[in-house]
Design a binder for these strands. Structure first.
Lengths: 235, 235
DNA sequence: GTCAAGGCGTTCATCCGACGAAGCGCCGGC
DNA sequence: GCCGGCGCTTCGTCGGATGAACGCCTTGAC
């Protein structure tokens, strides 16, 4: 897969930078040296570095070399950057994503309820049926249905930027999501809250949709924090 | 500035793709042909295409050529992509950004009020002072203070992903922002609403902060829509 | 001693020609 | 008609040559 050399360069350097092995301001070795270290040609190094520059991770200037840019200029929502960052997901990062959902999803639910796209709102109801259908199934199935439900809400919100944020976050979060909503009997509890969201969106009740969604994501956040503290106590 | 050839390749092709001059699925010409058309060498073309691939706009496969990817895989929040997209800002796009703010900022204000970082919350109050100080100034000054205020809220929210979304949006939106909050006597009206946000954040009253911020951004959205319809009536 | 101008080395930017690898389709054998 | 191999196209990579920008250091004037 990663047979392409320049991809390897991107992954290798990108991961190092995001992991802070190469702090901001660090001057990278020259292209020739990098080529030697990574066992690739200069072309591959250059293409890789250009990709990283496109993601805002580095900056190259004639005769001045390539240096790592400050974190603020990084494309934090780039798929690769997210992956590198959440590769080893510490609880701090999980909490941050839980916070992000609390900030994002109620507003999305509100927009969804306000949407004039009836089909998209009906899709939320459909996704809700999926939740009911899988509550007794294996956890994996239920999680998939849960993801579909939340995504349907963002789709109904009718804002592709918002949807994009959700998708990126979900992709990065996906790996650890099972860990998130994994308790077996727990599924039922969240169903009622989800149902309220779906009903409110379908009925176009934006305030209710927002409140209900907040209950869902805050519940998830509290669940995560509790689980985390318990895990911390055990280990 | 854009003397670097590969940058020109990125800009040229990227803009075309985002503008949908090159629809998804389109097979780009051969590297050699592209090099000819853009009057650059094959290396420059390759570096440029690699950058675009890094942004998710295109996909290259050995011997199969380079083709434009579906919009869903684009990095919509990439600085370049946003700029290409909002280069000629149609009212539809402005409405979308206004919607996004409605979805985002209340949640951010809520998180800000919940934050334990007292200094960051005080910074919101400080930014509020800036608003009071510039209300009589030239519009440009006030707009700058307004941007600083909203950014301070996101900073206080303590979620760098959320802050990043805000910054990217603001950067893309910046060009047309003057158009947004440009009415002279209008500044005063929004001040009270902003003050409520600042006060609520400082006092840690998250529900109030959220509600007040919603009033601010919904006011801005309504303002924008009204202005737009009026402009539409004139033209 | 101070300062400025110009030469020089470093490093990225680009072009180019060569070769390798991977699909894809054509074409001949059966 | 089916199948396998061959060759063409196109991307992937290499590395040498050249150009351009920038910093540094020498050199010379005052």
């Amino acid at each position: 897969m990663a047979a392409d050399r320049h991809v390897r360069v991107v992954q290798e350097l990108g991961a190092r930078i995001v992991r802070l092995d190469l702090p901001a301001g660090t001057l990278l070795p020259t292209e020739d040296v990098l080529a030697g270290e990574l066992a690739v040609g200069r072309s591959a190094v250059r293409e890789g570095v250009k990709v990283l520059a496109g993601k805002g991770l580095v900056e190259t200037r004639r005769s001045a070399g390539t240096r790592v840019r400050a974190r603020e200029t990084w494309n934090l929502l780039d798929a690769d950057v997210l992956r590198w960052r959440f590769a080893e997901s510490r609880s701090v990062d999980l909490a941050m994503i839980a916070d992000l959902r609390v900030a994002l999803e109620p507003g999305a639910a509100r927009l969804a309820a306000e949407s004039t796209d009836l089909a998209a709102r009906r899709a939320v109801g459909l996704a809700m049926s999926g939740l009911w259908a899988t509550v007794e199934d294996a956890d994996e199935e239920f999680v998939r249905a849960d993801l579909a439900f939340h995504r349907a809400v963002f789709v109904a919100a009718g804002n592709d930027l918002l949807l994009h944020v959700h998708d990126q976050i979900e992709a990065a979060f996906g790996a650890v999501r099972p860990l998130h909503s994994a308790s077996a009997g727990h599924n039922r509890e969240t169903l009622a809250a989800h149902e309220e969201v779906a009903a409110a969106v379908l009925r176009g009740h934006h305030r209710k949709a927002e409140t209900a969604m907040r209950a869902v994501v805050e519940g998830a956040r509290a669940d995560l924090l509790e689980r985390d503290s318990r895990r911390g106590a055990v280990s």
